[in-house]
Nucleic acid binder design. Structure first.
Lengths: 316, 316
DNA sequence: GAGCTTCATAGCATGACGCTATATTACGGC
DNA sequence: GCCGTAATATAGCGTCATGCTATGAAGCTC
């Protein structure tokens, strides 16, 4: 025979409060209501839960034992309510973010760190991938959101894209690179240097091709490729090699790594770094929290980058 | 906002069974019923518990977390049902038995030991007292049952008395006592010996007085008094002192302690050892179990005593 | 895409639970 | 031992959750 958990919780309240009336009050119910609940419970188990003829109602041995279990149930139930509440506020839950490697490493990861310091109970599973993989992940539920640079026209109809940052690329080299002291850089100045390339299947690699083609350099020498941002940064700072990176990545990397963006205009796809998600699916609150947070952070970052570029332009 | 524990348990069942239909089956409910319960729960918390558009229903992160809590609730609830069941069968609970010291020590304790070996989860609180105390204990709920020798006419109207054993007393001495070799014992034979007396306020003390008076010995010498059965037994076996004890106590003591009952008829109150309890109060099942058990044990004991006395009589 | 499985919805009956008002019963003080 | 007070139980009524069967809708599998 199954007992009603609610009844056990009520019993626990009565025993803990030392009386039916107080118990009812603690539960926010009327006294007759809990009285009847206890009568029902007693009738079902067929045994007395309270000593008969005692006015501040006192539990029997069985009543006390059941009250302990009721208390356990109450705690679990309360924990459930709390979990829902925290989940609703985006303070709890698991969150699966996928994104293109360079952006994730160079821009998003530090923001996620900041986010997590505020939302300690949100567990974040980060993964890497390009458009196709990320789309698949979003559709099959393996990802909550994807973060990647995308052309507005590229967005599939069942997905929704929220831009975060402009996605313009720049030619990057180490600080103190000979080219940083060169005024009016041309193709001729660049030609001698070797290139660091991202993985061949990455959009960034195609960006690199396109950028170099746009400045007339069809054919280029690659002496390092395939690494993640950390490797690219290391090779970049340890050599005179050049590469193409999103400006935002360079901008943020400069806080800790001596990099420079060359003031050479290159063609770049009209892409924007942004958040891609399934449009009709209701996102977990933690995800909404994160997207809101990233949006705000990126707006600040964009403002700082714009400000910085104005100064650079004025100086340059 | 409070969640329905029942809903959480249902959720747990669904998640554990890997589907709504299986969950419903495991719970012994119809599929539509649990479906609606989950719809209600989802509506209340305002967040999805299951991945949308998945046919073997799969929980979301939140759903899975709540299911874990539901499982905890389920375990506690099941434990409660089990407790009730065992309690109802008299296999669990606490049981407070009070009784007159000599009987409790000499007869009841060993039976209780036997009872407890069969009902391991029954906790027994034993206490000692005479009629007045025991009555009070029964009435104020401090005792479940009392075990004592009582005259049928002495039973108060609100209490109920179930006889267990005849309460006749005998004069007792150590085995090998000079009197045991004496035929046709008279007052003169007994006169020289000192007496061991129970506590002065005990009915047994009055029995002793009465018994001795009935054989003409108004005035007797007490050289030990106030001890419990264990002490009385020790003094008895270590000296030639005499005492008056219920025959049942002597009978059972003989299994381990060398005592003899003198074949001297003495007057004794028409009392019977029995169980006293409040007549209108429903007793915990464990108590009923114990009383039934004691009844059976005492019947067997009575039969053995009767048998033994026939033999003794034939021999004597 | 056919067929099967799985889940959701509809409709109805029953029972539990909420409340207020009121009766009953134990406790404490004199 | 009685009385006032406090604590609990009962009565009566409306609402909502839950049980069921029958049936519709949507995924999954091959």
């Amino acid at each position: 025979m199954k007992l009603d958990s609610e009844h056990l919780e009520i019993l626990a309240a009565i025993v803990e409060q030392g009386g039916l009336t107080e118990g009812a009050e603690a539960l926010g119910k009327s006294q007759p209501s809990v009285s009847r609940s206890m009568a029902l419970l007693e009738a079902r188990i067929g045994l007395p839960l309270f000593e008969p003829g005692r006015r501040p109602l006192r539990p029997t041995e069985l009543g006390a034992s059941l009250a302990r279990l009721g208390s356990r149930i109450h705690r679990a139930n309360k924990e459930a309510s709390l979990l829902v509440q925290r989940y609703r506020q985006g303070l709890a839950g698991r969150l699966r973010v996928g994104g293109s490697p360079i952006f994730m490493d160079g821009v998003v990861a530090s923001m996620i760190a900041e986010f997590q310091s505020r939302h300690a109970d949100v567990q974040i599973d980060q993964s890497y991938g390009y458009l196709n993989q990320l789309e698949a992940g979003l559709r099959n539920g393996g990802l909550d959101v994807a973060i990647l640079p995308l052309h507005p026209g590229q967005v599939p109809p069942d997905l929704e894209f929220t831009p975060l940052l402009s996605g313009n690329n720049v030619i990057t080299c180490r600080a103190g690179h000979p080219l940083t002291r060169t005024r009016g850089i041309t193709l001729n100045h660049i030609a001698p240097y070797a290139w660091i390339a991202p993985p061949i299947d990455s959009p960034l690699y195609r960006d690199l091709q396109r950028a170099l083609k746009s400045i007339g350099q069809e054919d280029f020498r690659v002496n390092f490729s395939g690494g993640t941002l950390a490797s690219i940064q290391s090779v970049l700072t340890g050599s005179d090699a050049l590469t193409v990176l999103p400006y935002s990545v360079v901008f943020l990397s400069r806080r800790t790594i001596p990099l420079e963006a060359l003031p050479l205009k290159i063609d770049h796809a009209e892409r924007q770094l942004g958040i891609l998600r399934v449009s009709d699916r209701q996102l977990p609150p933690a995800v909404r929290q994160l997207t809101t947070f990233l949006l705000a952070e990126c707006q600040r970052l964009q403002a700082r980058m714009d400000h910085d570029q104005q100064i650079t332009r004025r100086r340059g």
